[in-house]
Amino acid sequence: MTDMQKTSLAERLAARFGDTLKISVVRNETSAELAAADLLAVATALRDEPGFRFSELVDLCGIDYLGYGQVEWDTETVSGSGFSRGVEGEAMGRFDWADRPRGVDQPRRFAAVIHLLSIEHNQRLRLRVFCEDDSLPIVPSVTGIWPGVNWFEREAFDLYGIVFDGHPDLRRILTDYGFVGHPFRKDFPLIGNVEVRYDPEQKRVVYEPVTSVVPRVLVPRVIRDDADLLQAQAEAADDWRRN
C-alpha cells in the first residue's frame, strides 16, 4: 500500500502497460485510450492485478463522434443579418431522414467508453476504445471479465450499432420490438423515421413516415471562442453592479 500512495494511477498504468495505453489526466480524472485488440488483456489485468483491482465496471456507453464541434450558427463572419443567418438545422438530429448528413469524412466515428471503479483503492479509470471500421463498428465484449456489463453492451449496440464481439446475447434492449436503425447515432433524426397511429379502417396500429413533426431549431447550436466565463468572473468581481 505504501507503494500505492507514492505513485499516481497514471504512473502505475504507464509503467505496467507502456505504449498500449494513451493516458491522460484531466481534472483528476484518469482516462486511457487503447486499441480494440488490446482491450481484453488490459481489462483482465486491470481487474486482477493487486495494483489496480478494478473490481467494478460502473458504466459502459457508446459515443458517435460524427459532427463533433459542428455548429448551426456562424459567429465568426457576420452579425448584420440577425437571427436567421446560418440557422439551418444542420447539426446533429435536426433533419429528417432524407436530408441526413452523409459521407462526412470522419476517421473513427464510434467509440465505447468504459468507467471502472476500484473499491479497494478508491479509484476510477476511464477507458476509451475506438472502433476501427465506421460501417461495422466492432469492440470485443468484456462480459467474460465483468458480467454486469452485459446490458450496457446491449444498450450501446441498440443505440449506436456497436457490435460487441463475444457477447452471449446481443439483442436490442431499449427500443421497440422490430425497431430499425440505431437511434442515438448522430445521423439519426431526432424526430425519428416512423410514427404510429391507430388506423380505424384496418383496425390496427400502423407505422408511417413521420409527418406530424417537422425538424426545427429553437436554439441554434453555437460555439463561441471568447472567454465567456473568464470575462464574467472579472465582471462579477467588478463592483459597478452595486453602484
Partner: peptide
C-alpha cells in the same frame, strides 16, 4: 446506488453527449 452522469462537451451551448448511469439498470441486469 451510484447515479452517474458522463458528459462530453465540444465547447457548444449544448452537450455533445450525455450518458446517464442509472443504478437500477445495472441492478436489474443481474
Amino acid at each position: 446506488g451510484e447515479f452517474g452522469c458522463y458528459l462530453v462537451s465540444d465547447g457548444a451551448n449544448k452537450p455533445f453527449r450525455v450518458h446517464l448511469r442509472a443504478p437500477g439498470f445495472a441492478h436489474l441486469s443481474s
